[in-house]
């Protein structure tokens, strides 16, 4: 994008932002919510807008920020009810969604996993393919939320405020993996094992047990503010509102790096090829599963698996 076109984008986005600044009101806990004002002409409504938006679309985005260690210092204050829950909470060795059935953890965690994000656009609709879970999420642009029903990724509407994409999402399934905060976790000896092709970094996996998971309130909702801090860096500020869990909104910032074919970085081990292209991630068969209730893993019995696989052939 040229300097001139960037300037045009900036002006268009500011105009769009000004339209929405009047179109948005304040809701519970200060979260913005769409009013019924007209949204015609706002950025993200036409094919021509594709040229005017910040380039979220080239390549993919890999996160730099963890949802456990990255949030360790937030210390968002709990409600009395949630504090009681946290005080009695027993750390689990793994993320509770790593279970049979290949179920997604849902949002907000799905955006913060280690896989890539791929943004695509059609007039009035932004989609983000979250490769970690193999699913896209959909953001209706310049749109009222209207009627919703509980979903793993909620229902999202978005608009631009200047160069920032603001996405409001509400109505989440009660089954999502919902993080309250970060606790002490378990000692590494209880958590570290091996994954696929060799022992993983100790610090990373032992940290997973420090996440505190729990039920969310019916009105839990979130606002994400996404902007490029430089052409290769995407910052997403996520604010989660749930007054059954916290006395203040849970606000965290994740940093993502743009990955394209041939992207090179000093920290990458030799031989790792980054394509920047989305790949199918169809989870079909979880042979090792984790049960958070017993805090233990179960491998499907090899004899049973061979019988099953024989039958499928």
């Amino acid at each position: 994008m040229t300097h001139r076109s960037r300037k045009a984008v900036s002006i268009a986005a500011l105009l769009a932002g000004s339209i929405f600044s009047s179109a948005y009101g304040q809701a519970v806990n200060g979260a913005p919510t769409l009013s019924r004002a007209s949204t015609a002409g706002a950025l993200g409504s036409t094919w021509a807008d594709a040229e005017k938006m910040p380039d979220l679309f080239t390549g993919m985005w890999l996160t730099f920020s963890g949802f456990v260690v990255g949030d360790r210092k937030l210390n968002v204050p709990y409600t009395a009810k949630a504090q009681k829950y946290v005080d009695a909470y027993k750390p689990t060795r793994d993320i509770p969604y790593a279970q049979d059935g290949c179920r997604s953890p849902g949002l907000p965690v799905a955006m913060r996993l280690g896989g890539g994000l791929k943004f695509t656009y059609a007039p009035g609709l932004l989609s983000i393919y979250m490769q970690s879970v193999g699913n896209p999420r959909f953001i209706r642009m310049n749109h009222q939320q209207g009627e919703t029903s509980p979903k793993y990724y909620g229902t999202s509407v978005g608009h631009f405020e200047g160069d920032t994409l603001v996405v409001e999402t509400k109505d989440f399934s009660s089954d999502i993996a919902f993080q309250y905060g970060v606790g002490k976790g378990l000692p590494p000896s209880d958590t570290v094992g091996t994954v696929g092709l060799g022992p993983p970094p100790t610090a990373l996996l032992s940290s997973l047990s420090a996440a505190i998971w729990g039920p969310h309130g019916d009105d839990m909702h979130m606002v994400e503010r996404m902007r490029l801090t430089d052409p290769q860096t995407l910052e997403i500020k996520t604010t989660i509102y749930d007054d059954t869990v916290w006395t203040k909104p849970y606000a965290s910032t994740s940093i993502y790096k743009r990955i394209q074919k041939g992207t090179k970085a000093a920290w990458l081990p030799p031989g790792i090829k980054l394509t920047g292209e989305p790949e199918e991630w169809m989870c079909t068969l979880a042979i090792t599963t984790f049960d958070p209730k017993t805090n233990s893993y179960t491998d499907k019995d090899p004899e049973d698996m061979v019988k099953l696989l024989d039958k499928e052939q």
Binding site: R93, G115, V133, V195, L205, I272, L274, T275
Partner: peptide, 22 residues
């Protein structure tokens, strides 16, 4: 480490669906 762990799991990695603690 997060990048390394992610990169070790694939070309453009999916998440570690379990920690391997078994």
């Amino acid at each position: 480490l997060s990048w390394l762990a992610a990169a070790s799991l694939g070309v453009l990695p999916a998440s570690a669906h379990h920690s391997g603690g078994a």
